[in-house]
């Protein structure tokens, strides 16, 4: 059993628990233990960075220090927002001595230390690249035959670091879907931004960005959109009717986490992959 430190992030505790529950479950099928780091705190997200960079880094560094103290050399984030903020903190700590000394001092005030030994990775990267084609194919009991998936990565899987996948043209999820027996549609907006928090702060802008992704997925004949981030997921699943009314077109489309599709292909029940939490009609996809 491979073991990784796991950072679920706030949004996966209740609102988007379907992602965390399905991820933990399929990981176990693949011989991977996602060991939740105890007493982790919010990564700081995009919002905290807009207020204080130093505080945002301290928030993230506390999580890296917790993972290190528990003996992990890798911390896996499921949410793309957490992934980028945690990874960015690691980069600044490595490259900027001023940031390092400031953060070290702050951590010490809470009796913690961090020696920069933890690598931050995205869940999609770990499940696909560490388990590999053979490992994944060996677990498939019910291939997703005939299912056409729009593999949607959003912005922060590949950007800005290009480590989990290519910044412009990510392919990891497309490869995974092939191993599960599904096909993926040609999806040019695969790495476009869903709008993130602008759906709340600037709804017209957010709806334009999310609407485009839904529209293209429908035009390409996808049966569903697969996501790898809770914010993308909620933007794409929650406002389909509202955006559809605004644009005068039908934008209904099942939206699921890539881990839910993995679970179904591995023979888990729709309850086990938390299909009941979906806001869209996923009966044809996760049944």
């Amino acid at each position: 059993m491979r073991r990784y430190g796991y950072f679920p992030g706030c949004s996966l505790m209740v609102t988007n628990r379907a992602y965390s529950i399905s991820a933990t479950r399929v990981a176990r099928e693949l011989g991977v233990e996602l060991a939740e780091v105890s007493d982790w705190n919010c990564c700081g997200a995009t919002a905290y960075l807009a207020l204080s960079e130093a505080k945002a880094f301290v928030m993230s560094a506390r999580n890296l220090a917790l993972a290190e103290a528990e003996g992990h050399d890798t911390l896996v984030a499921a949410c793309s927002g957490c992934y980028v903020v945690l990874r960015k903190t690691g980069k600044y700590l490595d490259e900027k001595p001023a940031v390092r000394s400031r953060v070290t001092k702050a951590l010490a005030a809470g009796d913690m230390t961090y020696n920069r030994t933890v690598k931050v990775r995205h869940l999609l990267d770990v499940l696909v690249n560490d388990c590999g084609e053979e490992g994944v194919r060996a677990r498939v009991k019910k291939p997703l035959e005939g299912l056409k998936v729009a593999a949607y990565y959003g912005c922060q899987v590949g950007r800005p670091f290009g480590e989990a996948d290519d910044p412009e043209f990510p392919v990891t999820m497309d490869r995974l879907m092939g191993w599960l027996g599904a096909t993926t549609v040609d999806f040019p907006v695969r790495a476009a931004c869903c709008g993130g928090l602008t759906m709340t702060t600037e709804p017209d802008l957010g709806m334009e960005m999310t609407g485009r992704i839904l529209r293209v997925a429908r035009e390409r004949g996808a049966d569903c959109i697969a996501t790898a981030c809770p914010l993308c997921q909620i933007n794409l699943e929650a406002y389909q009717d509202k955006i559809g009314r605004k644009l005068g077109t039908d934008l209904r489309m099942p939206v699921v986490y890539f881990t839910q599709l993995m679970g179904r292909a591995f023979g888990l029940s729709s309850q086990e992959v938390m299909a009941q939490d979906s806001l869209t009609d996923v009966s044809a996809v996760l049944a």
Partner: peptide, 28 residues
């Protein structure tokens, strides 16, 4: 899916100390 009760981390005091250390330093 509505998070009706709040979870407070155990180490909140330590975290608050860390954040106020940064603030005292006047870091951006």
């Amino acid at each position: 899916r509505l998070e009706l009760s709040s979870h407070r981390i155990k180490g909140i005091e330590g975290l608050v100390k860390m954040l106020s250390t940064v603030e005292q330093e006047g870091a951006k």
